[in-house]
Design a protein around this nucleic acid. Sequence first.
RNA 1: GCCCUGAUAGUGUAGCCAGGUCAAUCAUCAUGGGCUUUCGCCCCGUGGACCCGGGUUCGAAUCCCGGUCAGGGCACCA
Length: 576
Amino acid sequence: MKNGIDSSVQELIRKYSLANAIKFDGKANAKAVIGKLLAERPELRSRARDIITQVNKTVKEINRISITDQISELEKIAPELLETTKERRSKELPPLKEAKIGEVTTRLPPEPSGYPHIGHAYAGYINWYYARQYEGRLILRFEDTNPRNVNQEYYEAFKEGYQWMGIDWDEELNVSDDIPYFYDHAEKLLDRGEVYFCSCSADVISENRRTGAACEHRQTSNEENQKIWNEILEGQHTEGEIVCRLRIDMTHSNAVMRDPNIFRIIDFPHPIQGAKYRLWPTYDFANALEDHRNGISHVLRSNEFASRGELQAYIRNLFSYAQPIIQEWSRFAIEGSPVSKRKIRPLIESEVISGWDDIRLTTLLALRRRGILPEAIREMTREVGLSVAQPILDWSLLLGINRRLVDPLASRYYCVTQPKQVELINTKPFTAKIPYHPDFKDRGSRKIPVEKRVFIDGMDAKQLRKGDIFRLKHAFNLQVEKKTKDTLQCSYAGDELDKAKLKIQWVTPDSIPLRLFIPDVLFIKGEVNQKSLQIIEGLGECALQDVKSETIIQLERKGFGFVEKNGEKVNINMTE
RNA sequence: GCCCUGAUAGUGUAGCCAGGUCAAUCAUCAUGGGCUUUCGCCCCGUGGACCCGGGUUCGAAUCCCGGUCAGGGCACCA
């Protein structure tokens, strides 16, 4: 055969050309066909030039015939290529590196120094997910080695936050319970001459680290270092005066490795340990050893720790401890929503926001009060995954997922704002029966008697002109007879559904006052958004009286919300 | 300043390691329609992206070089 291309290859070319043409309106693309062909028959790659000539020729021929003919020919020679199957499945996290069933241990490592937020939930869920996926263990470990940062109430706050997220753990411990373990290790290093005490100021240490210069303390004799260690444990030396450093390499390309501090004096009572210790390990030292002590197989964390990994591995190597698998992802941000205490605290102090559970924040308390379901956060986490790019998430991602999840759960209620009175001129007394959920009628309904007056939303009233026919939803139709400044006079206009121009929500005169809180992003281009919270007064139907505080409902045509009752007051935090 | 990462529709993400089935996935978003006694949910359709410049190759989102931009680290915080 010409160019040595045999008939089986010819046939393949013809098949793929036809399939490609059919996929794209009868016009095949030679490049796509070549790609497909060479992917399937890699041994042909050496003869790519000949193949290309042949493909070009075939594609030209095929593009000349009609798409119906193309389909019928392909049906004869390769019907399997005509199938177009689309599958849809919910996204899952990728398999974990070097993980075996039953041999995975991960950790939740919060510092109890504030309230858990969506970032903690995200990291927590990933650690939980893999621990459960591989039938392993999950350890809740409070990283409380800085007594000046930690506070008793936050230990509890984290546990509640994780529980709310559906994250359960197999073991709970505090790093601060293991201080003797760190001392043991430090003393071994002291014996081996791996550490020294440095009394340079923090500024000097930092500067030397930048320039790669060693200070005189690096030369301190072992005996002297041992002596200082004991002095500190006995209560000599003061906070800030001296630190214990690991002697590694002051010119290392990773600045973290330039003789890091591993212990410092902190004379401050610890919420759990009290005044038991004054010499506290720093993050890297405690973390590296604690991961080993806990038998952590996989360290799953955000990548702000990336450059510390080398140091932590170095520390474990000093003791010939095995290294865990490390998997990192980028820390993410939500557009316009600060996470850091530094940014939020001033907003609370200046009363821009009401507190750590203000519905504009991303603390778990805030998200819950906004009617966000934990599953929405979990799904969002799976969606964003272990990406190493720098995601700046939009609220719409979380809110969109949440809307879908909350829809089947939320009972529907009527609510009107800027109420406009509607006088019913000639209607007979009527009792409306309104189901709580349109898709689940078995959840029952409430009955609302209608007499001489109802209220509708001001926005709806605005659209109505004299003569218009509209429907009080789940009741009957009305025709506007007269429109005055604060009243619509209406007459009965039948029961047929399709006659009404608008079908609107309404409430009776005995309805209850509501306050709707509508959140928006807190920051726009770095400036505080003055309209980040709208508070709107409204009237809600009586059935809202029976709704328990802290349930998620839908106010029809207004959105989903989280009910909060405070005595007589009914507040509803809208999710968006 | 130095070091490490990264860059795919408006947003997020898959694909990149092992170049061809990518005419680029999925979600969110926007838009048109259907369903609906809600502007909700659901269903169908449509729209929109490989940071820039070189190189290697028959062929580059994918490999190489150079740039640009962004994030993190260089704490006696974690």
